[in-house]
């Protein structure tokens, strides 16, 4: 899997680079409009993480060029501007997703994985992990054929873990994934805790071969054997 990170902030670029290298991805970076354009012409990427504000040009212009080139690209826009207009324009120009800065690495990871999975499995939305099978389209999970019957939020939590296997997921990132902008709602952490309790119970009852482990008081980790 080959990623291109187009980001002008060096620190952010490096963090994303290291994070995805740890995930065993092939990662390349571009620091400005010109460099990004050059790399996009020369190489093919499975997923592109694109910042909108770039020295030398706008990320939206890059999107326009990609759209005109007849080659299929998978793009996640990252922008510090929490502007609905930008989001709409970006998605209209063929971007797959839009992430507002600051974002959590686990969230970026989940979104990249989701895109890659769609691309890799060419439309199929099934994921098999040990004895667990998840259908992302119908939003259902089965353990050896038995439906786990998850509610909407439980499925959100599970899919977030599945896309960040064996990774530490702190509660803030999880709450934000599940509740979006509404993490400031009181008890959202308690709520998440109860969802995880339910998930664990359902895993146990159906003898799923995966385990959600608590990491001190700060978060969780999906252990896949």
């Amino acid at each position: 899997m080959k990623l291109l990170v187009i980001e002008d902030e060096q620190d952010l670029r490096n963090t994303i680079l290291h994070f995805f290298q740890q995930e065993k991805y092939l990662v390349e970076v571009a620091r400005d409009y010109e460099e990004a354009l050059e790399k996009l012409y020369l190489y093919a990427y499975d997923c592109i993480i694109l910042d909108i504000n770039l020295p030398g040009g706008s990320g939206l212009d890059l999107l326009t060029k990609m759209q005109a080139s007849q080659v299929a690209y998978n793009v996640i826009i990252t922008s510090a501007r929490n502007s609905l207009d930008d989001k709409i324009v970006g998605l209209d120009l063929g971007a797959d997703d839009y992430l507002t800065k600051p974002f959590h690495l686990a969230e970026l990871n989940a979104r990249v994985k989701a895109i890659l999975r769609r691309k890799q499995l060419s439309g199929s939305q099934l994921l098999q992990l040990n004895n667990l099978r998840v259908d992302f389209e119908s939003r259902e999970a089965f353990v050896e054929g038995t439906n786990l019957t998850l509610n909407r939020k439980e499925f959100d939590v599970l899919s977030f873990f599945l896309l960040n296997q064996n990774k530490l997921i702190h509660k803030t990132a999880l709450a934000e994934h599940v509740w979006g902008d509404h993490t400031d709602t009181a008890d959202s952490f308690d709520f998440i805790y109860s969802q995880i309790k339910n998930l664990r119970k359902k895993f146990k009852d159906s003898q799923a071969q995966l385990e959600i482990q608590a990491v001190y008081g700060i978060g969780y980790k999906l252990i896949v054997h």
């Binding site: 963090t15 994070f19 740890q22 507002t100 600051p102 690495l105 990774k167 530490l168």
Partner: peptide
């Protein structure tokens, strides 16, 4: 919005890497 969210984004992600 832009100028302040960027350093916040960098710091957030660095701390996350450190936690990992």
């Amino acid at each position: 919005s832009h100028e302040l969210q960027t350093p916040l984004a960098i710091t957030t992600n660095k701390v996350e890497m450190l936690m990992e």
